[in-house]
């Protein structure tokens, strides 16, 4: 009997809370279709998961057809939002124009690429972009096989290379930034679509060298040694700060979402994008990426709001 009053009170509070929630007419319904890059996927997934707690009746679905595959669907109006780990290409813009699709591009986070060696490697202090290029360009195949060919004072030992599979966006991006042409590199390196295999490879080989997403390094800090990269202004280690302020070049890239203007007229899509930009700083960090500067997020928000207000005209 004693407990009745507190219990009743709690029940009242709970029910009134529930009442408030439904009384708010901000509860929307609908479906938001997203597809595209598997690199951007973890961020969008995290946002969608949190968004569900706020707007449980909006069904957000996310595919992983890759940046190119995503744009093919986006350009036909099959998706509302496209995840992309590179800016849209001319051929994809043409497809959008053909189908009369207008869109806006928003950057949501940065992805950094790390160059890594074995922890027992005590001779490498940094790489210049030219050294990496010399090592990875197609002409290097079968020729540049020893560490002392990269820099004469390094040991006369074979260098063992590890990298992501040629179908991955990470490989495209590394080759574009280092070799100068996307998808062009030497072929005699250990390639794996599974970055964890690369981690194992470098961790078990004193003369190993490889590259992959910064998030994988953060999960395996104790097994690998990260190397600073000199993009022309002295060696820089990839850290949150150096990626954020752009000094870690050329191995950091922005991640984007593209929003279809027809979808952008829908309130639930607008709410989702606002939620995305509000939560991207914390969530992108949580899944292993690097947030933009706060001012940059502010700029993206303003860009989106003006896009929305233009749509409503």
């Amino acid at each position: 009997m004693k407990n009745t009053i507190p219990v009743l009170l709690i029940m009242l509070i709970i029910s009134s809370c529930g009442g408030n929630k439904t009384a708010k007419n901000s509860e929307l319904a609908g479906t938001i279709k997203i597809d595209g890059s598997s690199t951007v996927y973890p961020v969008t997934e995290a946002v969608a998961e949190e968004f569900r707690a706020v707007q449980p009746k909006i069904n957000v679905t996310i595919g992983i057809s890759g940046t190119g595959g995503g744009f093919k669907k986006f350009g036909r109006g099959e998706t509302d939002i496209s995840d992309a780990s590179r800016p849209i290409k001319q051929s994809e813009i043409d497809l959008c124009n053909e189908n009369n699709i207008k869109y806006i591009e928003l950057s949501v986070a940065y992805d950094g690429l790390a160059v890594l060696v074995n922890p027992e490697n005590d001779w490498v202090d940094h790489f210049t972009v030219d050294e990496l290029k010399k090592l990875w360009e197609p002409d290097a195949q079968g020729k540049i096989t020893k560490w002392n060919q990269i820099r004469p004072e390094w040991p006369d030992e074979e260098v063992h290379l590890f990298g992501p599979g040629v179908a991955s966006g990470t490989y495209d991006y590394f080759t574009e930034a280092i070799v100068g042409e996307s998808g062009s590199s030497r072929g005699d390196f250990t390639a794996s679509e599974d970055d964890n295999v690369l981690v194992q490879g470098i961790a078990g080989d004193k003369y190993g060298l490889g590259f992959f997403g910064l998030a994988y390094y953060e999960e395996n800090k104790d097994k690998l040694k990260i190397i600073a990269v000199d993009g022309g202004n002295g060696p820089v280690f990839p850290t949150i700060e150096t990626v954020k302020n752009g000094s870690y070049t050329p191995l950091s890239r922005p991640l984007f979402i593209y929003i279809n203007s027809v979808a952008g007229k829908r309130t639930e899509v607008q709410e989702f994008v606002r939620f995305y930009l509000d939560n991207a700083p914390a969530l992108s960090r949580e899944v292993g990426y690097i947030p933009l500067e706060n001012t940059a997020y502010q700029a993206e928000k303003e860009k989106f709001e003006s896009f929305v207000s233009r749509l409503n005209e």
Partner: peptide, 29 residues
């Protein structure tokens, strides 16, 4: 899809399957 927060209710619904879920998880750090 890789992320679907609801079970499909009709043959016209969007969906994911176990192999895609596995593929997606294996590629995470």
């Amino acid at each position: 899809l890789a992320y679907v927060p609801f079970a499909p209710k009709s043959p016209m619904d969007d969906f994911s399957v176990l192999p895609i879920q596995i593929f997606n998880w294996i590629s995470r750090p």
